[in-house]
C-alpha cells in the first residue's frame, strides 16, 4: 500500500510539472502577441500602428519648434516596381498635418498586390507619429504597368519629446501577390 501511496504522490507533482511544460510552451507563443502589444505601447521596434488615428479637434500646433521628418523607401526582394517619396523630407511643427505622396510604378505586365511596411527611427518617436491616412494600412493592388500616387497624411503629436528634432520614416514595399493567392481564393481584393 505504501507503494500505491508513493505512486499517487508522484502523479500529483508530475501533473503540475507537465502542466508547467504546457503552459510554458503556450507562453512561448503568447509572447508573440505580447511583444506586439509591448511594441505598440512603447514604440520598441519602431513599427507604427496600422490603423488610422484621428486628429483631435482642438489640437494645438506647437509653432515654437520644428521637426524634420525624412522618408526612405525600398522595394522588397523580387518586387517588380519602383517606389519613392515625392519629397525626401518635410519640416513641420508638431500638431501640423502634412500630406506626402509616394509614387509607385509597376513594371510588370500583370497585376500585383503590394504591402508597404513602415519603420520609424528613433523607435520612441513611433508613438508620436500619427497617420490619419496611409497606403500602408491596406494591401495595394497594382494593375499591370500601373503608375500610382499614394498619399500619406500624418501629424506629429504635440507631446513629442523636445529632444527629438529629426525622425525617419522608412517604408519597404513587398510583393505579396503569391502569399495572397496561396492563402485563400475567396479573400476578395479591396477595390
Amino acid at each position: 500500500m505504501s507503494e500505491q501511496h508513493k505512486q499517487t504522490d508522484h502523479s500529483s507533482i508530475i501533473t503540475k510539472l507537465l502542466a508547467s511544460v504546457v503552459i510554458m510552451f503556450a507562453f512561448g507563443f503568447a509572447l508573440v502577441p505580447l511583444y506586439e502589444k509591448f511594441c505598440e505601447l512603447t514604440g520598441f521596434n519602431g513599427r507604427t500602428d496600422n490603423t488610422a488615428s484621428v486628429a483631435s479637434e482642438g489640437m494645438l500646433i506647437d509653432t515654437s519648434r520644428t521637426v524634420t521628418v525624412e522618408f526612405t523607401t525600398r522595394t522588397g526582394r523580387g518586387a517588380p516596381w519602383s517606389f519613392r517619396p515625392e519629397v525626401q523630407s518635410v519640416t513641420m511643427h508638431p500638431g501640423e498635418i502634412k500630406v506626402v505622396n509616394f509614387l509607385v510604378e509597376n513594371h510588370m505586365n500583370d497585376a500585383r498586390v503590394a504591402q508597404a511596411l513602415p519603420s520609424v527611427s528613433p523607435g520612441t518617436a513611433t508613438l508620436y507619429l500619427n497617420k490619419t491616412e496611409c497606403f500602408c494600412f491596406e494591401q495595394q493592388p497594382l494593375a499591370a504597368n500601373e503608375k500610382a500616387v499614394m498619399p500619406m497624411r500624418f501629424y506629429l503629436d504635440p507631446d513629442l519629446p523636445d529632444d527629438i528634432r529629426r525622425l525617419t520614416l522608412s517604408y519597404v514595399m513587398y510583393d505579396i501577390t503569391d502569399q495572397i493567392q496561396g492563402r485563400s481564393q475567396t479573400a476578395s481584393r479591396s477595390e
Binding site: 526582394r77 523580387g78 517588380p80
Partner: peptide
C-alpha cells in the same frame, strides 16, 4: 532585374 522573393537572389535594377 527584380530578384526573386524569398531567395538570396537580389534585384540588380
Amino acid at each position: 532585374v527584380n530578384g526573386s522573393a524569398g531567395t538570396a537572389m537580389q534585384s540588380f535594377r
